[in-house]
């Protein structure tokens, strides 16, 4: 009998104890939990420190994507700088795994901390390039791929990189 009361009241006491403990619940959407820097949220396309698009349409992200949600068609502008004419991500398929961010050699595609982009219309979840491109550099403020690549772009001729020699003079007879 005493054991019975002990068990019943013991349960009540546990409940009472917890009634006055601080809550773990966060009152979303008025309060939001801070996400870590490497949180895998919505995908964006970033620009490099010079303000040019980073994406060079190398097709690596679309190839590594495990659910084939990225569709790219690349082209080049009048200065022969490659960029994506079409860059679509189907967010109804995207599993936010982050493999595209890992694969990207120019640090163009990045996953942000934004996870609040649901929709009631599946068509609205097909993001085109204008929906993905942002003006900033994202997580990597200093990296510009073309300052390491050997191809020239406007403002950087062949041989201008710090790790390149000036172009060879093919017409000299000297060794």
């Amino acid at each position: 009998m005493y054991k019975l009361i002990q068990e019943i009241f013991g349960g009540f006491i546990v409940t009472l104890k917890h009634a006055f403990r601080p809550r773990d619940t966060i009152q979303y959407p008025e309060q939001r939990k801070a996400r870590s820097e490497r949180f895998r949220g919505r995908i964006v396309l970033t620009k490099d420190p010079d303000g040019q698009e980073r994406c060079v349409s190398c097709y690596l992200c679309s190839s590594v994507c495990p659910v084939d949600c990225i569709d790219i068609q690349g082209t080049e502008d009048e200065n022969e700088r490659r960029y994506p004419a079409k860059f679509d991500i189907n967010f109804s398929r995207c599993i936010l795994c982050g493999l595209c961010e890992e694969a990207c050699p120019t640090l163009a595609i990045q996953l942000t901390q934004d996870y609040e982009f649901c929709s009631t219309n599946r068509e609205k979840l097909l993001y085109h390039k204008e929906d993905l491109l942002i003006d900033g550099t994202g997580k990597h403020p200093d990296y510009s791929f073309y300052h390491h690549a050997g191809v020239p772009i406007k403002g950087k001729a062949i041989g201008d990189n710090p790790d390149e020699q000036k172009p060879v003079d093919v017409y000299t007879n000297l060794p």
């Binding site: 050997g150 020239p152 790790d163 390149e164 000036k166 172009p167 060879v168 093919v170």
Partner: peptide, 10 residues
């Protein structure tokens, strides 16, 4: 190798 790479004009 961390030296300078040789380049050519295209």
């Amino acid at each position: 190798f961390k030296g300078a790479k040789r380049t050519y004009m295209d």
